[in-house]
Design a protein around this nucleic acid. Structure first.
Length: 564
RNA sequence: UGGGAUGUAGCUCAACUGGCAGAGCGACGGACUCUGACUCCGUAGGUUCGAGGUUCGACCCCUCGCAUCCCAGCCA
């Protein structure tokens, strides 16, 4: 693990663990788990949980963290998700050693504990259908009514439950329920369902071995206990489930008492975080898959060019509390900028090319100029630039008439070509429509690696040789939504109405400096004065594709924006 | 209108558990610069949700309010 992770920030959960350790609870052990359901790809909110759980295991003596798939609902789950989750956790830099588990590993034990609950009169088979059960449940303000099947004999319940397992009953015809309290103000305690019947689904781990599947509220505490989990960390919406979590463990013969502690989930502005909505974005093709660089998924962020370090840094900075939150995108962006500023080699790329001809530079001449890969880190070496009579600069770096403080090229003005010479714009050439097609310039041969005499050149712009440059596709990404909380806005029918139509801009005529031709997929660069970019996973030799991870911080753009 | 939670700077979090309310991100101003980046220096920003109470002293304890979030799946 890298430097960034060493300064660990405390939080209320770590404080609880510290106190437990001091009190000698759990025999001095600290054992957490990350329990995803494999029904979608992991997102940045999961990363928060992963960093919390695995981070605790990393920081406490002999701490352990299990990876456990919560796979009790085969309807929504599959191996593609299982595999992507393992890949993402590993990529984030965490290791579950030999502690990979599935809740389905415990199906047989879970079944036996259910028999125990039935035997002690704590569970019963109920014949009410879903709609009836809803009626019997009561409302938030009124107590529920007891099921007519609530007082069946132990023998009958045992027989019925065994027949459920044997496949004798149809889906939905019966469930196993806990016998708790239909008048509880906590709806989770109103005789919650423990098992339901599901025929005809092939479970990705257990195949067709089972036709009854345990519910989360029943499975989770037992799985935790079986694995010897000491602190079971989950999000706030499970707070109301804690009494049931404890009830399950208190009513079966199991020796372990994990402690459930809840923290608030992450909300990131200008995106959505619910798996349902992310799935919708993918299946309805509003984005190009789970790893679309605009997605807040771990796979998407990876493809976008985010580093594991930057995501860990982010999770560290946002902290862990129980307060509802809405984190600014700027927080995430500053993390990746900080990490990449230090580690990404520099390069030059022209995104919107404008041809520039240096009239006093010999035709056919090529100079090989050396440029450092990093302004502050010599160990990153240097690369060679090809300087020629014709180069491309970015259209945005030239203006016929300059506003105040403009530091780029203007008609009759001087500017330095980064890592090369100072040039002066002599003439502007336009087409019939008045569009600028070419700049005619002169260069000062004495300015290579030296400042010109008697005058100060304020501006520096990047460039690429017209003859040696490499054509590339560059994808510019912006926020996926143009509303800070797309799924919280109740004035629209769907969060999709807030989709940002300009979240992806593809530039097919970008030109890269020659050294970038060999860049391998996944590698990251700073395109000087533009931002951080990474080679897309699908990039091919001869047809490079770069994704913009994030722009450079741009104080000029901010000033501009304010004037408008 | 039942139950469970949460309110500290624009955002995210601290505050040694009752002792001068701080940090990161952001904003603003400046310095430096062959990246309008980085770095550096500086500035602003708070009725700690509100009103009472206890106390020499309250972000912290008590009472009453207010606001927001979660819960009526055979989802997790």
């Amino acid at each position: 693990m890298s430097e960034q992770d060493k300064t660990i920030t405390s939080n209320f959960i770590r404080q609880i663990i510290d106190e437990d350790l001091r009190a000698g609870k759990h025999g001095g052990r600290v054992h957490t788990r990350f329990p995803p359901e494999p029904n979608g790809y992991l997102h940045i909110g999961h990363a928060k949980s992963i960093c919390l759980n695995f981070g605790i295991a990393r920081d406490y003596p002999n701490g352990l963290c299990n990876l456990r798939f919560d796979d009790t609902n085969p309807h929504k789950e599959n191996v593609e998700y299982v595999n992507s989750i393992m890949e993402d956790v590993r990529w984030l830099g965490f290791d579950w050693g030999n502690r990979l588990f599935y809740a389905s590993d415990y199906f047989e034990k879970l079944y036996e504990f259910a028999l125990e609950l039935i035997t002690s009169g704590k569970a019963f088979v109920c014949d009410l259908n879903a709609e009836q059960m809803r009626e019997y449940r009561g409302t938030l303000t009124e107590p529920g009514r007891e099921s007519p099947h609530r007082n069946r004999s132990v023998e009958e319940n045992l027989a019925l439950f065994k027949r459920m397992r044997a496949g004798e009953f149809e889906d939905g015809s019966r469930v196993l329920r806990a016998r708790i309290d239909m008048a509880s103000p906590n709806l989770n305690m109103r005789d919650p369902t423990l098992y339901r019947i599901r025929h005809g689904v092939i479970h990705h781990q257990t195949g067709e071995a089972w036709c009854i599947y345990p519910m989360y509220d029943y499975t989770h505490p037992i799985s935790d206990a079986l694995e010897g989990i000491t602190h079971s960390l989950c999000t706030l919406e499970f707070e109301d489930h804690r009494p049931l979590y404890d009830w399950v463990l208190n009513n079966i013969s199991i020796g372990c008492r994990p402690q459930q502690i809840e923290f608030s989930r992450l909300n990131l502005q200008y995106t959505v975080m619910s798996k349902r909505k992310l799935t919708q974005l993918v299946t309805e093709r509003h984005v190009n898959g789970w790893d679309d660089p605009r997605m807040p998924t771990v796979a998407g962020l990876r493809r976008r060019g985010y580093t594991p370090e930057s995501i860990r840094m982010f999770c560290d900075r946002i902290g862990i509390t129980k307060a509802d939150n809405s984190v600014e995108m700027g927080m995430l962006e500053s993390c990746i900028r900080e990490h990449l500023d230090e580690h990404a080699p520099r390069a030059m790329a022209v995104l919107n090319p404008l041809k520039l001809v240096i009239e006093n530079y010999p035709e056919g001449k090529v100079e090989h100029l050396s440029a450092p890969n990093h302004p502050k880190d010599d160990s990153m070496g240097s690369r060679t630039l090809s300087f020629t009579r014709e180069v491309y600069i970015d259209r945005d770096d030239f203006l016929e008439v300059a506003p105040n403080k403009y530091k780029r090229l203007v008609t009759g003005g001087e500017v330095r070509l980064r890592n090369a010479y100072v040039i002066k714009c002599e003439r502007v050439i336009k087409d019939a429509a008045g569009e600028i097609t070419e700049l005619r310039c002169s260069y000062d041969p004495a300015t290579l690696g030296a400042n010109p005499e008697g005058r100060k050149v304020r501006g520096v712009i990047h460039w690429v040789s017209a003859s040696h440059g490499v054509r590339a596709r560059v994808c510019l990404y912006d926020r996926l939504f143009n509303h800070p909380a797309p799924d919280a806005d109740k004035s629209v029918a769907s969060f999709l109405e807030h989709l940002n139509p300009e979240s992806l801009r593809i530039l097919d005529h970008a030109i890269l400096e020659p050294s970038l031709a060999a860049a391998v997929p996944g590698s990251r660069y700073q395109f000087e004065r533009e931002g951080y970019f990474c080679v897309d996973m699908a990039s091919q030799e001869g047809a490079p594709v770069f994704n913009r991870t994030v722009t450079l911080r741009d104080s000029w753009a901010r000033i501009d924006q304010k004037k408008q």
